[in-house]
């Protein structure tokens, strides 16, 4: 079998879908967060695969930026979770409905 870019994109799509499934089904805010990280990672894999496919470094540079933004996002998100846990004693996202209309 020839290993074309389609295989990588397929794997990326599967990982992204699993991440989306985690966001939609799990109720623990930290697990939801980890699923989001997995979706970002799937996108990164697609970027690197296309960079290889097109013979262009730009895809890899973009992955570099995505990882940086993900690091900042995790820091802020976990700080939010810690703050919510302090006031509500729970990180179940169904119980965090303070801003519900």
């Amino acid at each position: 079998m020839e290993l074309t870019i389609d295989w990588y994109i397929g794997l990326s799509a599967i990982l992204f879908s699993l991440g989306a499934l985690g966001v939609l089904t799990r109720r623990n805010a930290i697990i939801v967060f980890m699923s989001i990280e997995m979706m970002l990672n799937a996108a990164n894999l697609a970027f690197v695969a296309f960079a290889r496919h097109l013979g262009d470094l730009d895809g890899q540079v973009l992955v570099f930026f995505v990882i940086t933004v993900a690091a900042a996002e995790v820091a802020v998100g976990l700080a939010l979770i810690v703050t919510i846990f302090r006031s509500k004693k729970s990180i179940n996202i169904d119980e965090i409905n303070l801003m519900k209309g």
């Binding site: 799990r26 109720r27 623990n28 930290i30 967060f33 980890m34 990280e37 990672n41 990882i67 993900a70 690091a71 995790v74 820091a75 976990l78 979770i81 810690v82 846990f85 729970s90 990180i91 179940n92």
Partner: peptide
């Protein structure tokens, strides 16, 4: 960055909150 720093941050927060067993 990912497997190292970010996941250590995750583990740190999980253990800090004692949130291991919450809502599977």
């Amino acid at each position: 960055v990912y497997a190292g720093a970010i996941m250590v941050l995750f583990l740190f927060v999980i253990m800090l909150l004692g949130a291991e067993q919450l809502q599977g």
